[in-house]
Design a protein around this nucleic acid. Structure first.
Lengths: 346, 346
DNA sequence: CTGAAAGCGCTTACAG
DNA sequence: CTGAAAGCGCTTACAG
């Protein structure tokens, strides 16, 4: 039988209330008493019972603020599904979420959202942070107040106190290169279409791709890297010019704008029926991308478990709040899953 | 605020005990009253609070029996990790597991284990069932008593009342064929090494493989299918003779005995340095297989989320027990994950 | 067949 | 600074 607060209280010769104060570092307790109780608890190997805790905190539910730059970005569909699934499962444990979705990437807007949540008294925050000093400042202020923060999908430098849950972008690029290496038997001329060199994730993917090419596939060459700013029309033009300028055997889309690029490939192929269509690789599996894979227009994609990102984000803050342990949870790097037509989920 | 038993009691003008009896189909209650209470509950959209339920059932913890034919089979390492992880997370909700691992495939032994658990009074059972009438009988007897049963990793025909959580073997074979088709640009002569045609899963993998070859890759030919009974020594000989008899361009191991087979490939290649090494595909990612992939001796493997199988197995019985709903949980088909050297986890 | 009470582990006002 | 009591939602003997 697991050890309870009641047992600790008996053992220490104090009331349960006092044990609670000690264990949860609440105010209004003699520091020496608190210290002794904590020692007893750790000797006895006490771990709080989450069912008990959940029931007791029923009166003031744990509010989790969520800030996602997700509007208009279908990648987040599965992330959101994961979040809502977890929220549903944890609602019996008096956990509630408050969602705030943003469009585009405006640091100021994001900072404002953080501060609003901060002053509205959320117990924890999940955010897809921009890698900006102003955002960092706001987050650090929250963390200082003891509010757990989860960085979802995009990391923010110099905020190691917050857990990161998301893709290992560098590895994602390496997987793409490895896959292409195997398909092409190590020989290829690759055109890369990215979102923006300024986006940390996009940049890291390309780095990982290039490093793997250099170390493992010396005969795989990069023709050029073009930026499409995640814009379909721009992506169409980038891709078109890449195809016209170089005799590409492969295309790697490492961000958004995939369907625009595919349109360029289709046209290129229609006008040059004798040429071999390049091998097309991309990232993630939005419903649009899935459709293009089914149609045979994309050969493979490297995914990052978006559902799990959302689900584990909520789960992680729940655990952090339930255990109120000073120990930081571990970062979670989701798997870089290879999907082809045959193992695509519905 | 969610609706509680107390509210239903007030609404119906009865005590909370009576509501409990009605909602959980306990004995000793006027059927008409029970019916009325259930109607009220469903109108109000009542769902039981798991934290409350968990705390209350603290006195007699839920015991989950687990029967795995896992001894000596490294595939189950990750399944076990998943099970223990879930057990740890759910122990606060008074869930306990009792593990019984078996060696080999003896239906009688399995049946005995089931009956022992049945009479020792477990609340639920998780099992890797053999596809045998005697096993089916024992399981159906448990199910009749209202004990939820989860079939883990292997399905058993004609027991639709039990949830299946595991691989879609047919699809696993199709993914292997699709992957090979892409790598080989649709042209290959494949040797297949399987465990036993009698094992449902092994058989289904081959079926899936063949069907995909026929429908999508007409120039991919199967040289022969050999059985190794999951035995390394036998696997070595099967593989050796396949390589000697046919000019294979690919090998597909769809069960155990992979390292024995690879030894044959290594020797074959050493004695014929001019010939191209066949492309090697297998299933799952035991630590042995991972090592062979890292060494470049296996090109790709199709995995089935063993950790998730274990974790979700426990989670599913927990949900079933907590909700005590008559509605059966949904079968879970885990993803057929493609792993190559570049996206292998540590 | 039904109700009132006690209890699961924890937290939270309230008294002192 | 500390303790006693009430309460979260649910279940379980026990009385009647």
């Amino acid at each position: 039988m697991a050890v309870t607060i009641k047992q600790i209280a008996e053992y220490a010769g104090v009331s349960r209330g006092t044990v609670d104060r000690a264990l949860n570092h609440r105010s209004g307790i003699n520091p020496d008493v608190a210290k002794r109780i904590r020692e007893i608890a750790s000797e006895l190997g006490y771990t709080p019972n989450r069912a008990g805790r959940a029931l007791a905190s029923h009166k003031k539910p744990l509010l989790i603020g969520i800030i996602l730059n997700s509007i208009g970005n279908p990648f987040y569909d599965d992330v959101l599904r994961g979040i809502y699934k977890a929220a549903e499962e944890y609602q019996d444990f008096s956990l509630q979420i408050q969602m705030r979705q943003l469009k585009g990437y405006d640091p100021l807007e994001q900072q404002q959202a953080i501060e609003e949540f901060g002053s509205s008294g959320v117990s924890a925050l999940i955010i897809t942070p921009m890698n900006e000093p102003s955002v960092r400042q706001s987050l650090l202020a929250l963390i200082q107040k003891g509010i757990p923060v989860v960085k979802l999908n995009s990391d923010l430098e110099h905020t190691e106190e917050a857990v990161y849950i998301g893709c290992n972008y560098h590895k994602s690029g390496a997987v793409a290169a490895g896959l292409l290496g195997l398909f092409s038997h190590g020989k290829a001329l690759v055109g890369i279409v990215t979102g923006s060199e300024k986006m940390l994730g996009h940049h890291q993917r390309i780095e990982g791709f290039l490093e793997t090419c250099q170390s493992d596939f010396p005969e795989m060459k990069i023709a050029a890297v073009k930026e499409n700013n995640d814009d379909e029309a721009l992506s169409y033009h980038c891709t078109k010019s890449l195809l016209e300028e170089y005799p590409l055997s492969a295309l790697y889309f490492c961000a958004g704008g995939v369907s625009g690029g595919i349109r360029a490939v289709d046209e290129w192929q229609a006008s040059r029926p004798r040429r071999k269509r390049p091998f097309v690789l991309c990232c993630d599996a939005t419903s649009e991308i899935k459709e293009l894979i089914r149609l045979g227009k994309i050969d493979a994609t490297v995914c990052q478990q978006p559902f799990r990102q959302g689900y584990d984000g909520v789960k992680t803050v729940f655990e952090a709040l339930m255990n109120k342990s000073p120990s930081k949870q571990k970062d979670i790097y989701t798997d870089n899953e290879i999907k082809i037509r045959y193992n695509l989920e519905k």
